[in-house]
Design a protein around this nucleic acid. Structure first.
Lengths: 127, 127
DNA sequence: AGGTTGCATCAACGAATGTCAATACAGGCC
DNA sequence: GGCCTGTATTGACATTCGTTGATGCAACCT
C-alpha cells in the first residue's frame, strides 16, 4: 500500500530555485502544480494538518473519517490524493490503517514559495 | 482594475500556525485552499514565476502571452485567478497592462508549509 | 471621426474534480 | 468455515475548471 506511482517531485528537484529566482520550465511547473493541486482542497488541507500536527506522528483513518461531514469513501479518496502527491504515506496494521506526513515535499514547497532568505542562509548572512 | 474581490487571506491570518502545529479549522482551510488551488495549474505557476522573478518588478501582458502556446483569453483568465488569489496585482499604463507579485501571501504560504524553523526564529534561537 | 492594437469579458464546449451508494477486500473473532 | 469491522475501489452523477472564438472596451494614432 505504501508503494504508489508517486515520485511526483524527482530527485533532481531537491535543490529547487524559488519562485522569485527564475521562470519555471514546463516540466518543473507541471510537477509543482500536481502537488499544489493536492493542497487546493479544504478537506485535504485539514486532513494533512491533522496528520502533520500529530505529535505521535501517526493518525488512524478511523480517527479522521468522523471528523468530517463526508462519507468514508470520500475521505479515503482524499487521502489517496495526498499519498499520490508524496505528502503522506500509510501502513496497514491489523484492521486499521495509519497515516503519517512526509515533510520533504512540504519543505520543498515552502522553499519554493518563500521570497525571503531561508533559515540557513539567514543565519550565515547575519552572523 | 487593481480592485478585486480578493482579500482571500484575512488580516487575522497574518500570524498563521504552520501545517504541523495544529489541525486547521474549516474557515482557514477554505482560505488556504483557494490560494493553493490558484497555484495548482502549471500555466499559472509559470506566469507567477515569470512575474515574481522579474527584477524590475513588472511584466507586461504583451510579454507573457506569446510565451505560451495558448490563446490570449486563456492567459488573461489565468492572470485573473492569480489576482483573485492575492498573488499578483496589475495596472494599466496606456495601452499595456503590467503585473507584479505580492510577496505577502507567498510568504504566508511558505511559513504555513514549512515544518522547520522560520528564518527569524532560527536567528533568534542560534544567537 | 474612424481605424488599429492590447487586454478583458462572454458563451459554450469537453475534461477533470468532489461526492456518494454500492461493492470489494483485508484482517480479526467466533 | 462464517460473520463483522475498517478501509479501498468502482460506477455514476453534478459541479467546477481549462480552453477557445467571438465580442467588448480602452487607449493610441492619424
Amino acid at each position: 500500500m505504501s508503494k504508489q506511482e508517486l515520485e511526483v517531485i524527482g530527485q533532481d528537484a531537491a535543490c529547487c530555485p524559488e519562485v522569485s529566482a527564475a521562470p519555471l520550465d514546463e516540466r518543473r511547473a507541471a510537477e509543482l502544480a500536481k502537488v499544489f493541486k493536492a493542497l487546493g482542497d479544504p478537506v485535504r488541507l485539514r486532513l494533512l494538518s491533522m496528520i502533520a500536527s500529530r505529535r505521535g506522528g501517526e493518525v488512524c483513518v478511523c480517527e479522521m473519517t468522523p471528523a468530517f461531514d463526508l462519507s468514508q469513501p470520500t475521505i479515503s479518496h482524499h487521502l489517496k490524493l495526498l499519498r499520490q502527491a508524496g505528502l503522506v504515506d500509510c501502513e496497514r496494521r491489523g484492521t486499521w490503517v495509519y497515516y503519517w506526513a512526509l515533510p520533504d515535499v512540504l519543505d520543498q514547497l515552502a522553499a519554493f514559495l518563500s521570497t525571503r532568505q531561508t533559515a540557513a542562509a539567514t543565519v550565515g548572512a547575519t552572523a
